[in-house]
Design a protein around this nucleic acid. Structure first.
Lengths: 239, 239
DNA sequence: TAATGCTTTATGTCTGACATAAACGCAATC
DNA sequence: GATTGCGTTTATGTCAGACATAAAGCATTA
């Protein structure tokens, strides 16, 4: 049999988690279109060189994410796209791996434009001092890294997540993965766009100031401004 | 042993799906707080009167929803709330079963106020004729049921889902479950509020007209108006 | 004190078997 | 001919017991 000789190989991964990833990837890429039937569990087990137990655990994961539905005798079929948990962390990460299309980046940005201004306004209203301090801390690190595109990414992400957390709305807090994927897609697509992130620093500062000043409308507007700029950057890079 | 004599009983359900529901419910209710350890798989199996296989498949489901994390030797622990896939269909449904708190309804409504106006505007811009026809169809049924609070719910839900579908944004389409839970929570909380839904019909009509007229701003405004009214209804009922 | 190695333990995987229910085909019937 | 009813088939669902694996905890040692 063919087996990996050393650990850091491109060898075929095994285990339920890997099977789940590979199956999910195949479904996301359209290899198994909605309504179609997956191979039976036994056949999948031989395909992946694993036991039926592991295959079943992998299928359970996909089922929990709304990708598939198993029924006795009928087999396991792919559910319609409308049922997929599109904002699931793992699914978003997978789509980034597969290679984000343009609509992936633009649709995610449109969603950010709906959520984040509302979250910023809510944070300005809610006035959770500890959470606002986290925003301020992230902003300080952004300033410090404002001339290093690579180091900038991490505090930038933390800044936006901290605003979600400060909104006081538990459902808005669930969009961290979406922002992460949105930023990553933006970076992937606009690789040429190597200008330093410095210009966006004052835009972020305006958001922070408005939240600290307990001014919801200003916070909403400032966030809208920042995201509009991101949008025009994307469009510019696609041109 | 105590066993159900007839099928429609309150007997303890068995099977991986039931175990997953009961464990998820326990976690959501705070019986196993974040960072805490769940009982081992073998102990869970005896607790639920099932095999370790079924327990493991149930745990896989919860893991896919971000509720738990299993590590060798260390056991299975509850992840921080920020990692939970709060907008997951099943989790939302579970929280409705458990009994929606007030913050559940109000937080969901705040999210709707962020998403749906944007979706309506996008639908007005995108102009997918077939999808818009679906909205119109749902609206016609709403009109027909405008004096029957019970019959009104279903086309109402379809109306809002159809707008998400017409937005042309695949991520916005993923919020159907959220709207469903939001409506259900509203109904649960405002049971006393038995007035006929007739007053909301013209508000819905305004949204439809704006989308058909390809007027994004009007569509956004009309949706905002409708949701503000819903919000004041909730506040009124809680007073 | 800190590094090392052994033991323990809970999850991870495998195997083979049986249970269950829904789809299918066939036959009897209207 | 269309339909109903009933076994048969088959793929998922569950079970049991065993072994693999890796990380945590402890004891030992430099």
């Amino acid at each position: 049999m063919f087996r990996a000789m050393h650990s850091d190989d491109t060898a075929v991964e095994t285990g339920a988690a890997a099977i789940a990833r590979r199956l999910a990837s195949a479904i996301l890429r359209g290899q198994y279109p909605p309504q179609s039937l997956l191979p039976g569990e036994i056949e999948l087990a031989t395909q992946f060189g694993a036991s039926r137990t592991s295959v079943r655990e992998a299928l359970k994961s996909l089922s929990a994410k709304g990708l598939i539905l198993s029924r006795k005798k009928a087999g396991t079929s792919v559910r319609p796209r409308a049922d997929w948990q599109m904002l699931d962390r793992d699914l978003l990460a997978l789509r980034l791996e597969i290679g984000p299309e343009h609509s992936f980046a633009t649709d995610l940005l449109a969603l950010r434009q709906a959520i984040e201004p509302a979250a910023a306004a809510a944070a300005a209203q809610f006035q959770d001092k500890a959470a606002i301090a986290v925003i301020a801390g992230a902003f300080a690190e952004m300033e410090a890294a404002s001339h290093d595109r690579k180091r900038f990414v991490d505090p930038d992400l933390r800044f936006h997540k901290a605003i979600l957390a400060a909104s006081g709305n538990e459902f808005m807090m669930a969009f961290g993965a979406m922002i992460e994927a949105g930023l990553a897609a933006f970076i992937t697509i606009s690789l040429r766009h190597t200008e330093a992130p410095a210009p966006s620093v004052p835009l972020h500062h305006n958001i922070l100031k408005a939240i600290e000043a307990a001014d919801p409308d200003a916070a909403r507007t400032a966030m809208e401004t920042l995201l509009s700029r991101t949008k025009s950057n994307i469009n510019q890079d696609l041109a």
